[in-house]
């Protein structure tokens, strides 16, 4: 049984202008200890999927359909208290906006302690001891654990958040662009650390990024999202060496290769569609270099074309 299995998750946001179709029939699964990358342009719905998994969506979000099975049980069917127990203990998250993810008026240590105490009878002293360990683990000075967020640098905050996400030894950790706010050197350090920790603590991880080169370094499986849908899903190797979807191809050519080959960077022409009113057929159709008649009227099916390699494109069919 997979640790996490998402089937046909569809999620919309209610706005004054209409429904934003942010996530559309997204499916993937993840085993224990596995790491998966979720990649796509800004606004394609990565965070929405992550939030959906933890059921911490904003109030205007509506889950239209699908299942989120965590350890075989559907999170969407659980009541508040059951979900509360799964949060952080089962699934924790490193947030995209680390700067604002910490409460400015509570000391960082306290914020970690409260997470620990929310999931088990742990004495204050023991909890603080755990914080000390977590700090060492992520390379923070344990002496700073009683400081307030504004007294930390950006990198320290990010590490603190990582420490916090590890506090309850979760089965699954979702890292939502954990490094966007940092400079390149710091980004690299943190990514290395995350990978190392995930490996060492034997957790499953969903790593979200718009940078496919980062994903390549960290994950064994990769899902490529475009405009609320997963367009291609495979293990890292097949995705890089047997790229099937035109969007993935475009994405790969727009980033410097991780293998060090010098490539010309080709930004993808055009803009992602407006999710208030997405294209009828294939959502990538307006920007696709390989588009044909069928693309703007029929939605391509999401099919397993090779073993473990899923694609949604009219021109890629199972062998």
């Amino acid at each position: 049984m997979s640790l996490l299995e998402i089937r046909n998750l569809t999620l919309h946001y209610k706005t004054t202008k209409g429904m934003v179709q942010a996530v559309d029939k997204v499916s993937f699964s993840l085993n224990r200890g596995e790491s998966m990358g979720l990649v796509g342009e800004s606004g394609c719905g990565k965070t929405s999927v992550a939030m959906g998994i933890m059921k911490i969506l904003p109030t205007n979000a509506v889950i239209i359909g699908g299942e989120i099975l965590f350890k075989g049980e559907d999170i969407l069917l659980k009541d508040d208290e059951e979900i509360r127990r799964i949060r952080w203990k089962g699934i924790s998250m490193v947030f995209q906006a680390a700067m604002n993810a910490l409460n400015p008026v509570i000391s960082v240590g306290d914020q970690i302690v409260e997470a620990i105490q929310a999931h088990g009878r742990v004495s204050e002293a023991d909890a603080w001891e755990q914080v000390r360990e977590l700090y060492s683990l992520v390379g923070l000075d344990p002496g700073r654990r009683k400081s307030y967020p504004h007294e930390y640098s950006g990198g320290m905050k990010q590490r603190a958040i990582i420490a916090m996400s590890l506090a309850c030894s979760p089965d699954l950790i979702i890292a939502d662009e954990p490094t966007t706010a940092l400079d390149v050197i710091m980004q690299d350090q943190i990514i290395q650390e995350i990978v190392a920790l995930q490996d060492r603590l034997d957790m499953a991880m969903v790593y979200i990024s718009h940078d496919i080169s980062v994903i390549a370094e960290t994950c064994s499986k990769i899902g490529v999202m475009y405009a609320g849908k997963i367009v291609e899903y495979a293990d890292a190797d097949s995705l890089f060496y047997d790229t099937l979807h035109p969007y993935t191809k475009a994405l790969l050519s727009s980033y410097p290769s991780i293998k060090g080959e010098i490539k010309r960077l080709n930004p993808i022409p055009g803009e992602p569609p407006n999710l208030l009113d997405p294209p009828v057929g294939c959502r990538f159709d307006p920007r696709c270099p390989e588009r044909e008649e069928i693309c703007n009227s029929h939605e391509p099916e999401y099919l397993e074309v090779k073993e473990g390699h899923f694609v949604a494109c009219h021109f890629v069919k199972p062998a």
């Binding site: 509360r84 127990r85 952080w88 604002n100 993810a101 910490l102 409460n103 509570i106 409260e114 929310a118």
Partner: peptide
């Protein structure tokens, strides 16, 4: 965002309201 964090941490609604939201 820190309210989302608090919720994600699995704090009770009361804790979120009193400790994280109300104080700020």
């Amino acid at each position: 965002d820190y309210i989302v964090t608090a919720r994600a941490k699995g704090l009770t609604e009361r804790q979120i309201r009193e400790r994280h939201a109300a104080k700020n």
